[in-house]
Design a protein around this nucleic acid. Structure first.
Lengths: 124, 124
DNA sequence: CAAACAGTTGAACATCTGTTCATATATAAG
DNA sequence: CTTATATATGAACAGATGTTCAACTGTTTG
């Protein structure tokens, strides 16, 4: 029973080599996984979800968001920083205000697809 | 200067009432935000992203995933629990093994859309 | 039955994360 | 220049989270 499973480096469990090979052939890079995780981590917080939803309705300044979410401008600003870092929002300064809006249509797409999943998750 | 902005409960900042009304009219529920955040939080971790990607290639048992990601079966199992809780994966027992696969097409859609965003985020 | 294998689970620990608070920057108004 | 408003930022603290370790359940095999 000389299988093609090399058990030299360490003891190998009884696995499914074909399936494993199939995954390995897909060439999924470490940094792609990291980037995806970082993006979703940014989306994975209710305050930031609320901010993004609000910005999907209208362009808003920090002050507006602060009132809408009933949170301090500081807290909002900290979250906007993360949203900016993940390229989920853009901003422009106008006088004393800084107006934020969604960066592109991908963001709304992610929110929509996520919402659909949550609905199915609960209804069906 | 009697504005329609009621400053009774607490001192109000100079905001943009029209934009705020626009957001409030959208009726975005608290539990929708929570559900979305929970979903994305589950997606927001590189180990889980790798698991989901692997499962998008083939149905796999814990053992396979353990070898693919070079992690202990325990660590994998803990993460699979979260993925199950968010209805991102299904599973079936077959003998000693438990095989996992993606729950529905939404999951791949989210991964695809996320990947596109990450690519744009870096290239452009 | 006992032994081996596959998977799950709870506790513990280190790390990460969101909000608060104080402070700093920037623009506008007096 | 001084004051007020709008926003940003760093430190700090409490709460959340991922992996490890040990113990446990369930299935197959001898």
């Amino acid at each position: 029973m000389t299988e093609q499973n090399s058990a030299e480096t360490c003891k190998r469990r009884q696995v499914h080599p074909e399936s494993i090979a199939q995954v390995q052939a897909s060439d999924f890079r470490e940094d792609t996984a990291q980037g995806l995780a970082e993006l979703f981590r940014t989306l994975g917080e209710s305050t930031r979800v609320k901010i993004l939803h609000a910005l999907s309705c209208a362009e808003l300044c920090v002050c507006d968001l602060s009132e809408l979410l009933d949170m301090t401008p500081s807290a909002i600003s900290h979250q906007l920083r993360l949203l900016r870092a993940s390229k989920l929002v853009r901003f422009r300064r106008s006088g004393k205000n800084v107006f934020y809006r969604l960066d592109d249509e991908h963001v709304e797409g992610l929110l929509r697809q996520g919402t659909e999943h949550v609905r199915e998750e609960r209804n069906i």
